[in-house]
Design a protein around this nucleic acid. Structure first.
Lengths: 198, 198
DNA sequence: CGATGTGAAGTATTTCACAGCT
DNA sequence: AGCTGTGAAATACTTCACATCG
């Protein structure tokens, strides 16, 4: 359901660019292939944001959703892994635009440590603790090989990171107060194969 | 639910590496934080794969799942977009390992067309049709900017591609027989922010 | 009117619990 | 005994439909 909130926000930001002042649950839902009732239920769960007879004020709802999601502020992020995926994410513009700032990078490859990547120095994973502390980091991105994922997750959790976006194809065990979202690229392709195969 | 089948497969492949001959629904579920009943219901939906009193034969179930998902064969993939994300995916090992082979790349940047990337030539998007035909491509990966995503999706669908993995932060409209899976990186981070802020 | 917010109804998904097989 | 496969029960989620408000 939070998944849908992020979609509403994305759609609303597009509407704001088109200078739309208001939007109805029907129009917003149609853009995302959802019913109007679904949209209203989702939004009503957090307050009364709409105007009967009018709809939702786009700018207002954007601010409300950002407040709900917590994206009305900056989040400092540590990137673990400076391989293919890690490098791509480091320079991924939308992260910066939406308030997710990668402020530190670690990689266990001795040949990479000390080098700079996209203006950020690559550190030894052993330095995770001070990095998290000095940069006030709350989120981490795991772009390390599957074999190193759990160990890196442990180090990040131990350093006080509260949320992880995991690109490694493995299930992570974390304390209850450390949340994990996984992006399983192979799994996504497999699902496509299944659906296409029919 | 297909989502979970891909996770079972991943876990089973890990168990096979550890030379485990059989696994029970309880053990398999525990590794993924699922109940045993959930695992059995999922698998039973496709046939009777287990042995009462014993569990599931790891190797056997791997083959069954590959057959169900359609990953017991090669899938030829076209990559659209040779930017940061596209380049990372082109050299992403697990795709090749699991049977997803990127056999063609297109990018609208004139400066990139004709160049070679990871052993694959970058083509003009106008050549999508012949590329799909000659390489027998059924799946596509969209790693283009949001502004180009719908247009590229249309071109791919028109060329006969049946499934798309979309990295652009936008909702795509496709014919009913063209399936889309989206990887919304910003959305994933927003969800983490929401849960951490909790 | 046109659109929200929301109980009630309708679906879908998950868990329970147990007969039955090895 | 141990574990599957599966109806039945329990939850969760979505849609309906309508009173209500600007």
């Amino acid at each position: 359901m939070v998944r849908r909130l992020t979609l509403y926000l994305r759609e609303l930001e597009a509407l704001a660019l088109q200078r739309e002042a208001t939007v109805s649950s029907r129009v917003l839902g149609a853009a995302l292939s959802l019913t109007d009732a679904q949209v209203r239920k989702d939004l009503a769960a957090f307050g009364q944001f709409g105007q009967p007879g009018v709809g939702y004020r786009v700018d207002d709802l954007i601010h409300r959703l950002r407040g709900i999601l917590g994206t009305d502020r900056q989040w400092n992020v540590l990137l673990a892994g400076a391989g293919n995926i890690g490098r791509a994410l480091l320079t991924y513009k939308p992260f910066e635009t939406k308030g997710f700032r990668i402020v530190a990078v670690v990689d266990s490859d001795a040949g990479k440590i000390g080098k700079s990547l996209g203006g950020v120095e690559i550190h030894d994973p052993a330095r995770i603790n001070p990095l998290v502390e000095t940069h006030d980091i709350t989120l981490g991105i795991l772009a390390v090989p599957a074999t190193a994922a759990q160990r890196t997750a442990d180090a990040l959790a131990n350093a006080g990171v509260r949320g992880l976006l995991n690109f490694a194809p493995t299930t992570l065990q974390t304390p209850d107060d450390v949340f994990v979202n996984s992006v399983d690229l192979v799994g996504q392709m497999e699902q496509l194969a299944f659906r296409v195969k029919g």
